[in-house]
Amino acid sequence: MTKRIINTDKIREEVIRLTYQANFILPPDVEASIDSMIKGEQSPGAIETLKVLKENSLIARTEELPLCQDCGAVIIFIEMGQDISLEGAFIGDAVNDAVAEAYKKYYLRKSIVSDPLNRINTGSNTPAFVHCDLVPGTVFRLTVYLKGGGSENMTSLRMFRPTDPVEEILDHIEKVVVQAGPNPCPPVYLGVGLGGLADVAMVNAKKAVLRGVGTRHADPYYADLELKIMERLNKTNVGPLGFGGNSTVGGVFIKEAPAHIASLPVALNLNCHSLRFRTVEL
C-alpha cells in the first residue's frame, strides 16, 4: 500500500478556510431546512421569526458579520486513513494556530477559558476540541464544527435500562427538548447518540448531525424513529426561539453504537438553528 503524504500546513490552511465559512455562511442544507419550515408553519409569528433567521444569514454572508456573536467552541473531527503520513508541524499545533489566526483575522469572539474554575480567557479561542478517528486507506476528512454555549448547556446524558421500552426514550427526549424550550435557540437540530459507553454516546450525538440536514438514516428502522421523534417534538409548540409554532426541531439525527448488556446510554446534543459546520476531504 502506498503512503500518502499530507503536510500539516495544508491542514492549517483548510481549518482557517472552514472556520471562516462556518462563521459567516450558513450551510445551504440548513438554509433549505429553514425554507421548508417557513412553508410548513401555521403560526404567522413563527414565520416572521424564521424569516428573521434567513435575513440574519443573508447579512452575515454579504456584510461579513458572524452569524452569531457566540462564535462557538471549535470542535474538529478528523478521519484519517492509516496510510496517511503527516509531515510538517505537529497537527495539534497546526489546528490551534489556524483557529487562533482565524478568530483574530475575522473578528470572531474568543469564548474559551483556560480553566473551568479559574476562567481566564485564552484570548485566541483555543484550544480547539479535537476528535480523531483512524480509518483504512488514504482518506483525510476534516470537519470544523462550531458549538455555542447556550445550546451546549442544554446537553443531556441519561443511562437507560436495556429493557426500557423505546417509548420511554422518546418521552425522555421530548421532556429534555421542552424543558430546554427557548434556551438552545430552536428550531433545534437534534443529535442523538444511542448506545456505546457514556463518552461514545456523547461524541456520537455530536457526530450524528454531520450526516447533513435533510438526509435520512441509512437504516430504515432508525430513519422511521427519527421521523417519529421529529413529528412528536414539532407538536410541542415550543416553536422558533420558543415563541410558539410547529417548527421546534429542524432535524433529528441518530447515531447508534454497540453497547454493554447492562447499558443503554442516550445522549442528546441540541444544536441551535445556526447549525455551523463545514467538512472537506483533502
Binding site: 428573521v52 440574519n56 456584510e63 452569524l67 452569531c68 427557548p182 434556551n183 426561539l241
Partner: peptide, 29 residues
C-alpha cells in the same frame, strides 16, 4: 433569550420589571 427561574419571575412582579427576548442567534441582524 430563554427562560427565567420562578424566583426571577416573581421578582419582576414585585419590583415592576419586564423581561424581553430578542431574536436569539440573529447576531448579524
Amino acid at each position: 433569550k430563554g427562560k427565567r427561574d420562578e424566583k426571577t419571575r416573581a421578582l419582576l412582579q414585585q419590583y415592576g420589571g419586564v423581561y424581553f427576548s430578542s431574536y436569539g442567534g440573529a447576531g448579524a441582524y
